[in-house]
Amino acid sequence: MVQMKEFRIVMPLSVEEQQSTTGTEGVEIVENRPFEDDVYGKGQYTLKIYRLQSKAPTWLTKFAPADALVMQEEAWNAYPKCKSVVKCPYFTRFILTIDTVHKDDNGQSENVHGLTEEQLAVRQVETIDIASTVNDYWSYIIGSSNIDLSQFQSARTGRGPLTDGWQGQCDPVSTAYKLVTIDAPYWGFGSRLEQALVAGERALFLESHRNCFGWIDEWFGLSMDKMRELEKQSDSSLNKKLGRPCAIEDNEELDEIRTIPSC
């Protein structure tokens, strides 16, 4: 059965400010080029490779050889709308999509993705509080910055701390609506794989958005050159945790063309 879950990540930032932040998503970039179409308008297309052999759950390695746990992601980034499609060449029927819409609200919009009645009936919704912490398998794998946002206050903007009910009180505020759709039609382990990947995406969303705000004093008001340098650092740090190759090294060509917003 196809799993469809919408994560709503409320942020004490405007949509415009989120567009300028650096990313924590680190992968090998195979292709990176501008695109334009009738759905998203103008944006940036990327083809990326994830290598998950060393971090996959033990039960999954029983169903596939290590070299099969390589994922390919195509992404169409036309902020404030983005779409990612993840496939696995070994499991040819597997597909994961993430549709993201950013809005200047506090997570109360009910159908930003324009779903049908049938889709709304199966969609699950979870609002992620970036001030919360989670200790599970995927949060351990992804790692944690150990920033306590319930105590943190930005020196440059005065925003924070994020105490109970902060989503309805802060200004500015915006929400990343991330619709995760997973289909792994494999008898015996498909449902378990779908559940594991939803949990993994949730952990990644939480940590990346926590860092996005927790590091605000490092990026707020910086030039694009400085932002790119921070992007390199965060990319390298996360890749070391995940056992992936760094997406950006000292490659001037990639540095010039890469434009991936974080949140």
Rank of each mutant, 00 (worst) to 15 (best):
G214A: 04
V15P: 05
T127C: 08
T24P: 00
T92R: 15
F152D: 03
L47F: 13
E28A: 07
R258Q: 05
E36F: 07
I98F: 02
Q124F: 02
R8I: 13
V10I: 15
T100V: 15
A196F: 02
I141F: 01
I260W: 03
V86M: 12
N32R: 01
D255G: 00
E249L: 00
T116W: 06
L238C: 06
G243D: 10
D105Y: 12
F63V: 10
E231A: 00
R228P: 00
G221A: 09
N77P: 00
N32D: 11
V30P: 01
I142V: 14
E118W: 02
C246N: 15
L206A: 02
R93V: 01
R156A: 14
A176G: 12
L120T: 06
A66I: 00
F189I: 13
L230F: 02
G160Q: 12
L96V: 07
D99A: 14
V112M: 13
F213D: 06
T181V: 10
L179G: 10
L60W: 09
Q151D: 07
S139F: 06
L69A: 06
L179W: 05
I260S: 05
D235K: 02
I49W: 12
R33G: 04
G158N: 08
D250V: 00
K240W: 03
E194M: 11
P185D: 03
G23E: 09
T21H: 03
R210Y: 04
P161L: 11
P185H: 05
G214V: 06
E231T: 04
I260K: 10
A176P: 01
L238K: 13
T175H: 09
M1P: 13
E231P: 00
D250Y: 00
Q44N: 15
G43E: 07
T97H: 13
D67P: 01
T58D: 12
E16H: 07
E118S: 13
E126L: 04
S145H: 08
M1E: 12
C246K: 14
P12E: 11
L230E: 02
Y137T: 07
M11T: 09
K241Q: 11
N106Q: 12
I142K: 09
F213K: 08
P245I: 13
L179H: 08
E6M: 10
E73T: 14
L238S: 13
A56L: 13
K55G: 07
S145F: 11
I130S: 09
G41S: 11
N32V: 09
R202W: 05
M4L: 14
W187L: 12
T163C: 12
F220H: 15
